[in-house]
Each structure stands twice: as structure tokens, then as C-alpha cells.
Amino acid sequence: MVKPSIKAVMNNNYKQIVKVAHSNIAFVKYWGKRGRQYPLNPSVSMLIDQCQTKTQCSYQISDQLQVESFQFEGKEQFDFGKRIEQYLESISEVYPLAKRLRLRFESENNFPHSAGIASSASGFAAIANILAEIEWLENNVRLSREQISTLARLGSGSACRSISKAPFNLWGKTKFDLGTDDYSLDLDEKKYSFSEKLADTILVVNQSQKDVSSSFGHSLMNTHFYRESRIEQAHENTRCLLNAIEADNFTDFGEIIENEALSLHAMMMTSMPSYTLLHANTLRVIEKLKDSREKGEIMAYFTLDAGPNIHLIYPESQKDQVKSFVSEFCLDLCEKIIWAPHFGES
């Protein structure tokens, strides 16, 4: 990858595309992978409308692939630009046009990156959408949602779940003949939805970049002592979670997502080498939430991604109770609060 000269920017004819993609939060966690970004276990997720990555791409057809520049929030990111170039090289069998693209990217998030809020998911989902648009502009071919999801998966596994048009999304083949490892599946909204829409408030305990990347964490599952039992647990929790959604049983749903969140972090803490991404304030908020729920003051459950930050999941009728809980217990324990509605809400 090379820095673009001002002369090149001024004199060459580049077409521009802008795409926005959303982060997602997994309720059943994907942890561990095999082959070309295939999951060890199925996962179920929901889009987060308020957490977005906006990526602008300037491109032209060339005789060879080259990512000339990748800027994130105004700063050149040479390592990530190289990663995008390697990604494009790796997908040339399924996306031949990749070998003939000269590209420049400018990207930004409206939420903290590398802090456990699935920024790589929205980032690669935006890039996959850009590639689909280029395919349409240059070859007059419309890629399907499944094809775009596959392209996103090859960049970052969880990114395939950010190519979605439904409230709930499944990635990975289950033991009850639903789902595929190749791309995410939009779950039938008529069958898999709650009578009351869910909301997600993100309690950002720490905005700093994680000490341990998710990619490294995934690799530790290859030799993890609890690998097989974790895979079995995820399959069972997927079945139970979908049953809870279908039955409109938010309590069962909540208990499963909390179990999944803690299981994810237990895998980190029992890997070799072991590590933890939870912070003291993460645990303080969790204990406060459980206490308030036991007292009947709130009906909300937590989940966590691979980081210290907490997602409060609740029916939208609980919004006032959640605001009171956050105001009373969380403001001094968190660096930022993101009020993120359910998919499709504004």
C-alpha cells in the first residue's frame, strides 16, 4: 500500500460510493472459527441502528489490485489498509473484479471502535456493500443479500450478521436444520419476534481499545479445554433462545442471553493463555441490574460482546425504568451511554 499523491487524486477519474452499515449484538455468541471464517457454533444477533460505520470509497478500474489509502476518522491506517488489500486478494475467486480495483477509503464510526461493540462487523459490512455496488456499476450484476453477507463474512465473521433486513439474524448451521455457515439468515419476522419491540442501551464502561483482539481470542478456542462443551452449549442455547422468541417469553430470553455473555468471558478467562476484558465497573453494573430486577424495579437483561461494555436489552415499555436505573446507578460507572433502539426504530 502506498500513500496517494495529490497529483494522483487531482488527475485521475475515480468514482465514489458511500455506504452505511450497522453494528450488531449477538445474543448467542460466536466464539472460535475454522477454515475461511466459518464459525465453530451458531449465533443469533440483532442489529443496532444507532451504531453505524459510514465508509466512502473512491475507486477506478485498473490492471491490478491496489488499496492506495485507508483513512479512519481522518487518520491514515496503513496496517488496516494492508488488511483490506489482503482481504480483497483472498476473495478474488468469488469476486473476480477485486483483482482490478484501485481504491481509496475514508471511514468513520459514531461509536467507539475496538471496544467490544462489533466495529469490525459494521466496517466490513460497509465494505461488502461497497463491493456489491461496484459490481452493479461495472458489470450490471446485482449481488444477492446472501452473496453480500458471504463477502462480509470473509472479512470478519460477525460482519455477515450486519447484512440484515430483519429484527433477528442467525449465522451458523444448527442441529435442527436451520442456518448455514456461509452467510447469515434473516429470521422470519412473523415467527421470530416479540409482541413488544426490544431496545438496546449500551453502557460504555471503557472506550479504550481492547488489550486483546477478538481474532486472537478466536484462535485460542482451537486448543481450549472446554471447546466441545462450549459448542454444545451454544447449539442448545440457540434452540432455547429461538423457542423463547417464538413463544414471546422475554424472561427465558433474558436468562439465556446473560448466560451466553458470561460464558463468552469464561472462555477467555479459562483459555491458555488466559485473559479478561471485563472491568470492575462492568461487574458493579451487572450486580446493580440484578438487584434492581429482583426488587421488581426493572425488566431488563444484560449481554456483553468481547469487551467490557454492557448492552441493556429490554422491552420498549421499560424505557423510563431503564433511564431511571442508568441515571441512579450507571453515570458514575460509565464513560458514555448510547441509547440504541431496536432494528427499524428511530
Score class of each variant (00 low, 15 high):
23 S>C: 07
24 N>P: 12
24 N>K: 10
24 N>T: 10
25 I>R: 09
26 A>W: 02
26 A>L: 03
27 F>G: 01
27 F>Y: 11
28 V>R: 04
29 K>W: 11
29 K>N: 14
29 K>A: 14
33 K>P: 06
34 R>D: 11
35 G>V: 06
36 R>I: 08
37 Q>R: 11
38 Y>K: 14
39 P>S: 08
40 L>D: 13
41 N>H: 12
42 P>F: 11
42 P>A: 13
46 M>R: 05
46 M>Y: 04
48 I>L: 15
49 D>K: 15
53 T>R: 00
54 K>F: 01
54 K>L: 11
55 T>M: 05
56 Q>R: 13
56 Q>V: 10
58 S>Q: 14
59 Y>N: 12
60 Q>F: 01
60 Q>T: 06
61 I>D: 01
61 I>T: 12
61 I>A: 04
62 S>Q: 09
62 S>N: 15
64 Q>K: 15
65 L>P: 10
65 L>D: 10
65 L>E: 09
65 L>K: 10
66 Q>W: 02
67 V>Q: 02
67 V>P: 01
69 S>I: 00
69 S>P: 00
71 Q>F: 06
72 F>K: 05
73 E>F: 00
73 E>T: 05
74 G>S: 05
75 K>E: 13
76 E>C: 02
76 E>T: 12
77 Q>V: 01
78 F>H: 13
79 D>F: 11
79 D>H: 13
79 D>Q: 15
80 F>Y: 14
81 G>M: 03
83 R>I: 04
84 I>Y: 03
84 I>D: 03
84 I>R: 04
84 I>F: 05
84 I>H: 05
85 E>W: 00
86 Q>I: 01
86 Q>L: 11
87 Y>H: 14
88 L>D: 04
88 L>V: 06
88 L>M: 14
89 E>T: 08
89 E>S: 10
90 S>N: 14
92 S>E: 13
93 E>A: 13
95 Y>V: 05
97 L>K: 09
98 A>K: 01
98 A>P: 00
100 R>M: 02
101 L>T: 02
101 L>N: 04
102 R>Q: 13
102 R>I: 00
102 R>C: 12
103 L>P: 03
104 R>T: 07
105 F>T: 02
107 S>R: 07
107 S>E: 06
108 E>F: 00
109 N>C: 10
110 N>P: 12
110 N>H: 09
110 N>A: 03
111 F>Q: 08
112 P>N: 13
113 H>A: 13
113 H>T: 15
115 A>D: 06
116 G>A: 14
116 G>I: 06
119 S>A: 09
119 S>F: 04
121 A>C: 04
